[in-house]
Write a protein that binds this DNA or RNA. Sequence first.
DNA 1: AGAGGGTAATGAGTTATGCTAACGACCATG
DNA 2: CATGGTCGTTAGCATAACTCATTACCCTCT
Lengths: 149, 149
Amino acid sequence: MLTTMPELSNGDDADAVNALRSAVMRLSRRLKHQRVDESLSPTEMSVLGTLARCGRATPGELARKEHVQPPSMTRIVAMLEAKGLVRLEAHPDDRRQKVVTQTEQAEAMLEESRRKRNAWLAELASGLDEDEWAKVRAAAPVLEKLAQL
Amino acid sequence: MLTTMPELSNGDDADAVNALRSAVMRLSRRLKHQRVDESLSPTEMSVLGTLARCGRATPGELARKEHVQPPSMTRIVAMLEAKGLVRLEAHPDDRRQKVVTQTEQAEAMLEESRRKRNAWLAELASGLDEDEWAKVRAAAPVLEKLAQL
DNA sequence: AGAGGGTAATGAGTTATGCTAACGACCATG
DNA sequence: CATGGTCGTTAGCATAACTCATTACCCTCT
């Protein structure tokens, strides 16, 4: 739990934070261009990914998960609905809320997406050795957790 | 070198890529708001970090390193110069190019930046256990390398 | 020496993607 | 039944990137 957190003041961690921040910013920029579907923004893709894991969610929940303001999520969901990738239904208990679910079309697109991402990854991974890649793989779920804190 | 790259087709790696992509997008969004200097965009900060490591670079080199188009870097460098954080000099051998170096003021700002980032990190790290944090620390330099490939 | 192709930086205009503020519909508690 | 809080939405705006076009310069080849 890092209750004492002694390492936050030492140089290694400071370097790690610097590296992490820099890498995240640059990678996010590259990911914007590495779109699996030309007409879908990274955040829209991320929402689909979240839906695939959660099954269903309200716009507000999605906004919190993606760290986006509710109005932005409104627009994103509307976009996705217009493209037939999600469905909006009335919330069973609360008529203020709505429930978003993904369509079969989205399911197919995500599969396609996985293939293309792997291709992209193959190119990048060729620059990493086995050990480096193992570190990335180990850290990936942690980073995801970190992003949601 | 992953010459055979057998793991690119297995599920673990696909999951890792999904998690990584999602985490990078969300973290980058949060980092945008966690600015150390309110008047400096994340990319501008990243450029200063790069300069701190490299010492000096041309706008074109910086654009390539940051994965930004040259015109964007022109504007960023102009911004930084206007704020007294970098200096532009003529290239000794090629009059088309310019050389960007950081000022002492930038040096001081980066130090300030490091402190604030550590504070932000402390908050996030409190949600990770020692083992998770170790994984992030191990992966940070690799991610940086990945971002530059 | 001069012409022409390639590269560096830049200027202008556009697009994308988020934000804040204000609003209407709805729940819930007195 | 009124009133305060919450959810989603609408409207307007800000930022930070992009593309296309231009200018200045280097370099090679004749």
